[in-house]
Design a protein around this nucleic acid. Structure first.
Length: 236
DNA sequence: GACCAGGCACATC
DNA sequence: GATGTGCATGGT
């Protein structure tokens, strides 16, 4: 493994020994993960949980129901997640893109199952799935990667603001590095391992939420020994 | 009351 | 291609 890869793995082990295995999106269906990935855009997960609970209570956690439901009604259900009008449209866009062609079960996805390409929407290879998701208005790179990794179980690294802040403060990326270059740094220096990518992203979120906050000095951070530079922040 | 949260699209220059 | 802005609730 490259020296960058070794450094990244040291980061990972330090964060994981502090926070423990995160097991993000446990026990949720691929559809719930897709919906959660859209609802959590620039939004705290606690607010997303309220919106998901509303959808469950309204028995609206199905592609069929979401396809039929008028956008204003959907917006009222997801209100706690914020940006409810725009997110209702984004959910409708997603449903319109996948439901007519793939049906209620997205073509028969079983999370993480290795199947022939084209067997179902989420069964497609990671790069193809990512491209198809990015073609949907309202699904950007982070949302697409979250769906590819957490719903489809394909190996793609999810980059977010926390990832950039942590890596930026450790000078592993430069402020001008964009999403794809940060993603490439991680993917080209780490072993292709879905479980690693899954938990690594979650660990970045944990350390970002807990210690590596805007303008914080990061005291007590599990990565403190690796040398934070709190004067430098990534602008992603 | 300000700031932040598991972004994205669009307008403008 | 880079930068700015609207979208909106709920916790700290």
């Amino acid at each position: 493994m490259s020296s960058t890869g070794e450094t990244l793995m040291e980061f990972y082990r330090a964060m994981r020994s502090r926070f423990g295995h995160q097991a993000w999106w446990p026990g949720q269906t691929p559809l719930e993960i897709c919906i959660g990935a859209i609802l959590t855009q620039n939004t705290a997960w606690t607010n997303v949980e309220k919106a998901l609970a509303n959808l469950q209570a309204a028995e609206a956690m199905s592609l069929h129901r979401l396809h039929e439901m008028p956008a204003p009604q959907l917006a009222s259900l997801i209100r706690p997640a914020g940006y409810f009008n725009i997110k209702a449209k984004r959910l409708k866009n997603f449903v319109a893109a996948v439901y007519p062609r793939w049906g209620e079960n997205l073509g028969g996805i079983v999370k993480g199952r290795q199947v022939a390409q084209g067997d179902g929407f989420l069964d497609r290879d990671g790069a193809t799935l990512r491209e198809e998701l990015l073609a949907i208005n309202g699904i950007g790179r982070e949302t697409a990667d979250s769906i590819v990794l957490y719903a489809a179980g394909r190996c793609t690294f999810v980059v977010d603001a926390y990832t950039c802040r942590v890596l930026g403060r450790h000078r592993l990326i430069a402020p001008e590095d964009d999403y794809e270059s940060v993603k490439d740094l991680l993917e080209s220096n780490l072993p292709d391992d879905v479980e690693l990518f899954n938990d690594f992203h979650a660990q970045f979120v944990m350390v970002g939420k807990t210690f590596c906050r805007p303008r914080s000095r990061c005291e007590g951070c599990p990565l403190e020994g690796f040398g934070h530079d709190v004067e430098e922040t990534c602008n992603l």
